[in-house]
Design a protein around this nucleic acid. Structure first.
Lengths: 227, 227
DNA sequence: AAATGTATAATTGTCAACAATCATACTGTT
DNA sequence: AACAGTATGATTGTTGACAATTATACATTT
């Protein structure tokens, strides 16, 4: 052999998986706003793929809740509703409290280091006014906790939420040209996460999520005024 | 018009949806045991459908976690692991506690009636030794709570868990020829659910789930002994 | 005999044509 | 003019054929 073929390892090997990734990114980044109709023939030619794999990708994303499909009628980027945002934040609160209860007794050096590193990355992104990066790094910070729980079901559930959360952050950022978290919003979070007071951590999560909700609340009122 | 055409309302109108339903049922009822390889050509001819819709159905079920798909290799009914069962029960505890916190202040007559009715159905199924029906009715009982929360995200998450839970119950029943819940196991549950003591209800859920886990624990040890 | 390489068969991935359904614009009727 | 009915076009659903990949069995080499 001449060279190692790393493609199977580094790249998604099926067109379907590529399409899922690309579509998900496009939605999350706001390139395909909520409500956009996704016409199969257009999308398939745009992505250079036939309709077969595209349709399979659509099934996956529909199951993830990022798009809505109505048989014989069409596929649409999932609409944002006030209820959906509220539900996301209340559910996320429960999920993350559960995550901390699980992770608390098995926190180790790796957990400490990753959390600290991720906080630095987030701070840097905020300071640099790198809005898109800021959204990503904030989600990555919370992801550290879920990753260390050793609870696959919780992890999967979090991943499903993460996509929609990312979308809300992006839309909010686009609408107001300012990103979500303020500079010190996560300092106390990490401090408590590495401390000894679990009840205090759980309380802070409730508070943290409410603050997060406050920030996207302007998005909520805009949606409400559209009716 | 001669007669109302109710087909579009009562029936899934796409082959894909039919296949999803049929495959899900077959897995949940234990007709396709965990680990079974699902060969597309075989399944499609068995179901009288071409491979297109079948593959789309596979994407949906894979996203729901009922089957595992390895590109270019094959699709398998998801294997049961000890970890998966433990995770399911711990996660379910959190989920149902959240559900009761949500529903508590908005319980009404409909909630009361449905819960009572469902308890009767469950009791009848148990008394009649209707094992398959018993599994269904027990899940339906818990479903009443989720239905009344008005929280779609929670509801969706519960539905995803429900399939796997149903499968575990079925496998346990098949292995030991006895069904899960004992005759009075849900009496206290419903009594507390209709009462005034939320903390007591939450505590009972923890206990209830632990009892449920005890019942399928024999399934766990069997799986473990297979290694 | 064990390990390596190769050919074959089985299976999955992809595609393009065809059928079924829906939405729109148009026509005709009251 | 408003409404119902109809025809047309666009879009989704379905199918069978073809390409790419993998796994198995077999042959070859050490």
């Amino acid at each position: 052999m001449t060279v190692l073929n790393l493609k199977p390892i580094l790249k998604n090997r099926t067109l379907r998986a590529d399409v899922v990734e690309k579509l998900k990114d496009a939605i999350i980044r706001g390139d395909l706003p909520p409500g956009t109709k996704l016409v199969e023939s257009q999308l398939s030619s745009l992505l250079g793929v036939s309709r077969g794999p595209l349709r399979e990708a659509i099934r996956q994303l529909a199951e993830q809740g990022l798009i809505d499909n109505i048989p014989y009628t069409g596929t649409y980027v999932a609409n944002i509703t006030v209820q959906a945002i509220r539900e996301l934040y209340s559910f996320r609160t429960e999920l993350e409290q559960f995550a901390f209860k699980l992770v608390w007794e098995q926190r180790d050096d790796a957990f400490h280091d990753e959390l600290t590193l991720q906080l630095e990355k987030l701070s840097l992104a905020i300071k640099s006014d790198a809005h898109i990066a800021t959204i990503f790094e904030e989600l990555e910070l919370h992801n550290v906790v879920y990753k260390h729980c050793g609870h696959e079901l919780l992890q999967d559930t979090w991943q499903r939420l993460r996509g929609r959360l990312h979308l809300y952050f992006t839309l909010h950022q686009k609408a107001h040209n300012r990103t979500g978290p303020y500079i010190n919003a996560h300092d106390k979070y990490v401090e408590l996460a590495l401390g000894d007071d679990l009840p205090a951590m759980l309380d802070h999560i409730t508070e943290h999520m409410q603050q997060g909700y406050q920030k996207v609340e302007s998005l909520v009122s805009e949606i409400e005024s559209q009716n």
